[in-house]
Simulated assay, not measured.
Amino acid sequence: MASIREEAVIESSADDVWEVIGDFVAGPRRMAPGFVLDSRAEDDCRIVTFADGTVVRERRIGVDHDTRRIVYSVVGGDVRPEHDNASMQVLADGEQRCRLVWIRDVLPDQLAAPMSKTMSAGLAVIKRTLGHLGSPE
């Protein structure tokens, strides 16, 4: 099984970043506007549409507000892994800075390279979008 880990420092408080990341349904379009075109609820899943036209169905596994961690799994759509488990966790790194750690385990291993590329591109958008949340303008 391939494991992917992406991490970024975001210049906003962990609480402010978690308010977006922890929103299972709307979080993807709020954290990565333009990269994600739509995210909507359907049963216990969210349907996420990306700018490149890819549509995935992601099942909510868990949201832990105390540890600021969300876990989900791609279960359908244009990408159909045999196994997928992804987590995003927001860790405080001072008052106005945090780290976002995004980990994904996926099968088959051949999906790791394209998923890693997509995660890296998405994380760049997330960092730009969520940086300086709550800062006075």
Results as ranks from 00 to 15, higher is better:
2 A>L: 05
3 S>M: 11
6 E>W: 03
7 E>S: 15
8 A>N: 08
9 V>C: 08
11 E>I: 02
12 S>D: 02
14 A>H: 11
15 D>Y: 06
15 D>P: 03
16 D>Y: 00
16 D>A: 13
19 E>L: 10
21 I>T: 12
22 G>P: 02
23 D>S: 14
23 D>P: 08
24 F>G: 00
25 V>A: 13
26 A>C: 03
27 G>N: 10
28 P>H: 10
29 R>Q: 13
29 R>C: 06
30 R>L: 15
32 A>Q: 05
33 P>T: 04
33 P>D: 06
35 F>K: 06
35 F>L: 08
35 F>G: 02
36 V>I: 14
36 V>P: 00
37 L>I: 09
37 L>G: 10
39 S>C: 04
44 D>S: 15
45 C>K: 12
45 C>N: 14
45 C>L: 09
45 C>S: 10
46 R>F: 00
46 R>K: 01
48 V>W: 09
50 F>V: 05
50 F>T: 00
51 A>V: 14
52 D>Y: 00
53 G>M: 06
53 G>E: 08
54 T>Q: 07
56 V>A: 09
57 R>Q: 11
59 R>Q: 15
59 R>T: 10
61 I>W: 02
62 G>H: 07
63 V>T: 15
65 H>E: 15
65 H>F: 06
65 H>I: 12
65 H>G: 10
68 R>Q: 13
68 R>N: 09
71 V>Y: 09
71 V>H: 07
72 Y>G: 15
73 S>H: 06
73 S>C: 12
73 S>Y: 01
74 V>I: 15
75 V>H: 01
79 V>S: 07
79 V>T: 10
80 R>C: 11
80 R>A: 10
81 P>W: 02
81 P>N: 10
83 H>Y: 15
83 H>C: 00
84 D>A: 00
84 D>T: 04
86 A>D: 03
86 A>K: 03
86 A>P: 01
90 V>Q: 11
91 L>K: 12
91 L>E: 13
93 D>G: 03
94 G>K: 01
94 G>E: 11
97 R>I: 03
100 L>T: 06
101 V>P: 09
102 W>D: 01
103 I>K: 11
103 I>S: 09
104 R>D: 09
104 R>G: 02
104 R>H: 07
105 D>R: 12
105 D>Y: 02
106 V>H: 08
106 V>P: 00
106 V>A: 06
106 V>R: 06
107 L>Q: 13
108 P>D: 07
110 Q>R: 13
115 M>Q: 10
116 S>G: 12
116 S>M: 06
116 S>R: 13
117 K>F: 00
117 K>V: 00
118 T>K: 12
119 M>V: 04
120 S>L: 08
120 S>A: 13
120 S>Y: 03
121 A>I: 02
122 G>L: 08
125 V>Y: 03
125 V>L: 02
125 V>D: 03
127 K>H: 06
127 K>P: 04
129 T>Q: 07
131 G>N: 07
131 G>M: 08
132 H>W: 05
132 H>K: 08
133 L>T: 03
133 L>V: 04
134 G>E: 11
135 S>E: 07
135 S>P: 01
